[in-house]
Design a protein around this nucleic acid. Structure first.
Lengths: 356, 356
DNA sequence: AGAACTATTGACAGCGCTACCAAGCCGCGG
DNA sequence: CCGCGGCTTGGTAGCGCTGTCAATAGTTCT
């Protein structure tokens, strides 16, 4: 006995087609390839759909067409401000397109990332955006095997799975350190939290710059696996001063840490920049507002997310981008906290290295 | 002529059933109601699924079962730190369950919210989490008509659509203002950005407290529709001082603004708390780290997101919570910035009003 | 022993949409 | 006048899974 499973009030494509006086398949085409319809039918289907308030059933569409309109996004953290900017860019780019975002959090674990990737790919996503370039070999081969566009985000490297957008963390950090050295600093400390791959690469940039200047000293380095915070900045800075009391500048791998250092300096009556220069990384909004204003390295996070999503969408629509690797560059925003009084160099000068 | 559409390598439920030596429907039940299977078959299906690396096709499941395992989440902003905490809670709660999150951004527009709601509901979500209690009448009736659990987040009010979790913004703000008045302040300014419904309710709490004390004065109030930022805090504070130079305390509807006020005080050589008391709202991490430490109102955002998602999941599993409205309360975190020197009252005292 | 249950398992028929193929229509060239 | 090719439209047959009902096996009760 066949039972009635279809609720009477529900509006399916069939209802729209009936009202428009066309076959269901023609109505279906209206939503996929409207340009293949004659003007006449196009108008009729459109008004019928509007009149009935038709909303397509995505599950049925996905099942029948063997693909979804979902872009999977894997990011390591929801807490970190850095990613909220990236996400905003992604969501803005997707907004208005027919695609939707499926977001998942790897918690900085590449094994967790691999697991999520497996689940995502089983649902045949339309596209994929992943963070960073350090995936497990297993993840990598999964991404290479899939036929949907993939963007690696936040960094650039030699071996893109498909597309890539970001900047060189090592170079960006190197530029900031060079600026501090230009100011005459000799004992430049490094504070790093979490020590994820991107912070590691900034650390490499620091080490290179210090080594080139013959100033590298392990006592100047304080790192921790703990997640970044303002309070932690103060703590790490205290550790640094304990190890190297003659520190004359601090580079912080995150702006949170830099703000914490500034507060700790205020607490200890260390005047910035007279006795201590400070630079952060990321250029969060508050850096330009602090007293003194804080130097940082501006990275184009919103732009990064936006472009990544746009690249995926364009690739899905068959328009592969002309360049698969996009370097968004960075800008050292020189502010009061890193300019030696009386030293040549004016505040708010910028050292930029954008993609050419 | 029937064509082959099924790719040969693909693993469907049928393949798992075949390997396990059971019918497809039995295999299907293994994934939905394993306790209905005999131990014997349960083990066989499990090992067959694992051996083949079977991953269910969610689109087919959704189509056949007429429901999804997606929880729709509508938040007004991705930028605001407040929501990243809430989101983290939601994702943490969902993690490990069989549900997934579909996130969308209303950009503080209830019309946009209504539009998104319409799209979400057409896909028959398993549950829904929306921000605030100010929806359009249209949105409200859609949410009432749906049979999935709905949680309203961030606030509590009289008329829940279904479930509700949050706290009273008016009361929380009122408590902070009372604390400032207790410190002997008479000219307490109010700075507000964005002025979304929740900030509006904090504003009401401020007005009530000031009116009760006979101290309400429009010159003490500076608001703007612009989104909050640290820099904006400085600007609004400058405006306030221009209108009311005798201001002796500032309540900021967001912590960003409070930090901006602190920096502006430093710039103008106004000493905190000697000449100016400051309180923020939300208790972001940096507040406890600033110099002086900044008073704020702690709200349990992570907990809010986590509980909301848990409530939805439990409701979906048939366990409706005992209470549909959960008040998570707040805590006034009294710190250096709001304690008059020499005044009775010690730093880090807390004024709490948690749910009883 | 027979009836009345309960616990397991299976068969069938879709869910709403789209891929694939085929057919109808038109104008044009041979 | 016929046939060809491009443009539009329609028919058929699933996509992979689950809701419903029925059937079978195993148990308990009277």
């Amino acid at each position: 006995m066949a039972r009635k499973r279809t609720k009477p009030g529900k509006i399916r494509l069939t209802e729209v087609a009936k009202l428009a006086g066309v076959s269901p398949i023609t109505a279906s085409r209206f939503f996929r390839t409207p340009e293949a319809l004659s003007i006449n039918k196009r108008v009729r289907v459109e008004s019928a759909a509007r009149e009935l308030g038709y909303v397509p059933n995505l599950a049925a569409r996905a099942l029948a067409s063997q693909r979804t309109e979902v872009i999977g996004v894997l990011i390591p953290s929801l807490t970190n401000n850095v990613f909220s900017d990236v996400l905003r860019g992604i969501y803005d780019a997707v907004d208005g397109s027919r695609y939707t975002i499926q977001l998942a959090n790897t918690r900085y674990s590449i094994l967790q990332e691999e697991k999520l990737l497996r689940v995502f790919l089983a649902q045949k996503p339309a596209g994929l955006i992943v963070t960073g370039i350090d995936q497990t070999p297993e993840s990598r081969s999964m991404m290479e095997a899939t036929d949907c566009p993939v963007v690696q985000l936040m960094e650039i490297g030699d071996n893109p799975v498909d597309m890539m957008i970001g900047f060189s963390h090592a170079d960006a950090c190197h530029a900031a350190i060079s600026h501090l050295l230009d100011q005459g600093c000799r004992r430049v400390g490094f504070l790093g939290a979490r020590m994820d791959p991107r912070v590691q690469r900034r650390f490499l940039g620091y080490q290179q710059a210090m080594k080139d200047a013959g100033l590298l000293d392990p006592r100047l380095i304080v790192t921790t696996p703990l997640p970044t915070s303002v309070t932690l900045g103060g703590t790490l800075f205290a550790d640094l001063l304990a190890k190297a009391p003659d520190t004359d500048a601090v580079f912080c791998a995150n702006d949170d840490l830099a703000l914490g250092v500034l507060f700790e300096c205020q607490r200890r009556q260390i005047s910035v920049p007279e006795q201590m220069l400070i630079s952060g990384f990321n250029d969060l909004e508050f850096m330009a507002s602090a007293v003194p204003t804080l130097t940082s390295v501006r990275t184009n996070r919103y732009e990064m997310g936006r472009t990544a999503a746009t690249m995926v969408i364009e690739a899905m629509d068959g328009r592969r981008p002309e360049q698969k690797v996009v370097d968004l560059g960075y800008t050292v925003m020189v502010r009061q906290s890193s300019v030696r009084p009386g030293h040549a160099g004016r505040v708010s000068a910028e050292r930029q290295r954008a993609a050419e």
